[in-house]
Design a protein around this nucleic acid. Structure first.
Lengths: 314, 314
DNA sequence: TGGCTTTACGTTTATCGTAACGATG
DNA sequence: CATCGTTACGATAAACGTAAAGCCA
């Protein structure tokens, strides 16, 4: 009987579901199944009754639960005591991003994270999405905020959705009715400003164009949204960029138009899996589930465009 | 932080020694060192002060100790509760022996073991020492009572001394003064009765003879001490056998004479190591340390020649 | 020198993730 | 057929044992 096993057990008991318990513990579901089964074998009797719609404790499970809680509480108390001594939680959290943290709840998360764990050194690094994914897999960075690739994330990476985003067309103000969607064919006829082919976002637009038999030709490639907006304002062309950037709603020189059909992308936090994440990352993931954070762009960007961004300790 | 780690920690704290803690936990000493060090790294401060003559808790260690105890106590309470349900401890303990359990504390141990853990099925199997060692290494049996080979036990086996035994010469009664030791050379001139060359005990005598430039020639080979004694009583020859057999002190037809030089052998309990022993074996090993059992033959055999041998459930 | 702890290294074990299957509504 | 839990299997990481090296009497 090990602490981690009891942790899983309590999670299943409280969530009444193996799947949800796995999510809470940041592991895949079969891992929970196996260890619960091993525990049941060790104790000699089943702990849960697997019903079709939910999982309930057996009498044995009910008997174990208080002990398991007491055990975990004692361990937690010990951790807490040592956390007090050495600045709560210590360590380093290296977060990679391909840009576009604006509009997500990540800045607010980082603020809360920094308030709770001032002992953790948070480092932000920037790189294109593919590079970030490789770095996350190799353990060079703890996690990355990236757009989920069209083909799904590569193996060995876990993810959690941060934001359901979509691409929009950005045109000079006054040139178009904002409620009038733009077709991809129409966009393809204009000089295009957008993410370069090295970027992860590029693939989405390219695939969407290809699905319509169109070829994507980015005239001005940059990942800098401010620059994209400026280029549009200068009349260079139209930008295809993600909706959830505060600039798109603040800059008066431009108008934002939906695309038809919509090009959606999910911004996710991706991290390496294979062994349970270290304490700093685990705390971050826990924060992600704990804090109410919407994955819908409208409300998120409407309420906090100029969130006080915490200065990550470099 | 895992329960086993805390177990090691408490063991070191209570024993004030890594070595003794390792013995208590039935693992080798570096295993303790590593996990304690890992725990210290995890908590961010040393838990023990390694002094030349003893190990003492630091303030951090003292702070952890009560929590660790509480944690282990909760886990133990859980185990106990489930033990109550399904007959305390369940499982099987397979013990191998090459004969010669008489004179050791094993019978008494088995009695106490059976009283405490009636749910454990104890099975005794007999085989020559080399076979037993192989079976113990492969996990076919949980432990074996054997004579420690002259070259030491093979790798992968842990051991605990049960009895410091020695060989003696057994002669027909009245043919010799019991206080007059017999030299090996003298013995070599007689027809010899003893363990066959397949036996582990054989190697001891053969090596001792070889050290004196003598060759061991067993005329009648048997591991059955009763038969050996009978053969001696019949005047076939003299037996070279281990001292600690009650028969040698009960049978009036023979006389027991020390050898010069003495041929010593240590009867040990040997078990597989590499992963922590399972609960039945661990309980047995714990009993071995807990119960006062002398390793000196005289008192042991004097007080309990006809110990009520518990019938092992087959 | 001898006991005790640490370090380094190879091997074994265990855990986890993936994928495919089974059961249930 | 969609969801949830199980099983089988391969890959990765952790734990342990061995051997050899400090370290302090």
């Amino acid at each position: 009987m090990e602490l981690r096993t009891l942790e899983y057990f309590v999670a299943v008991a409280e969530e009444r579901s193996f799947t949800r318990a796995a999510a809470r513990c940041h592991v895949v579901q079969p891992a929970i199944s196996q260890r619960i089964r091993a525990l049941e074998k060790e104790l000699g009797e089943p702990l849960f009754e697997r019903l079709p719609r939910q999982v309930v404790l057996t009498s044995g499970g009910a008997a174990l639960l208080p002990h398991a809680r007491a055990c975990l509480a004692a361990a937690a108390a010990a951790s807490l005591e040592f956390a007090d001594r050495s600045g709560l939680l210590s360590g380093t959290l290296v977060l990679g991003t391909a840009g576009g943290l604006e509009g997500t709840s990540v800045p607010r998360l980082l603020g809360e994270y920094h308030r709770r764990y001032p002992g953790v050194q948070v480092r932000l690094t920037g790189a294109p999405s593919p590079v970030l994914m490789a770095q996350a897999r190799s353990g060079e960075i703890d996690a990355a905020v990236i757009a989920e690739p069209p083909g799904g994330l590569p193996h060995g990476l876990g993810s959690r959705c941060l934001l359901e985003d979509r691409f929009v067309a950005v045109l000079p103000a006054g040139t178009r009715d904002p409620d009038h969607p733009m077709t991809l064919a129409e966009a393809a006829r204009c000089p295009l400003i957008g993410y370069g082919s090295g970027s992860g976002a590029h693939a989405f637009v390219r695939d969407a164009f290809a699905a319509q038999g169109l070829q994507l030709d980015i005239a001005y490639a940059t990942a800098d949204i401010a620059l994209q907006v400026t280029l549009v304002a200068e009349g260079i062309g139209i930008a295809l960029t993600s909706y959830t950037n505060p600039l798109l709603r603040l800059d008066q020189r431009i108008v934002v138009v939906p695309l038809e059909p919509a090009i959606r992308l999910r911004k996710v936090l991706a991290w390496r899996l294979g062994n349970r994440p270290g304490p700093p990352l685990r705390a971050f993931l826990d924060l992600l589930t704990e804090l109410p954070h919407t994955t819908h762009p409208t409300s998120a960007t409407a309420e906090a465009p100029q969130d006080p961004q915490p200065a990550p300790q470099d």
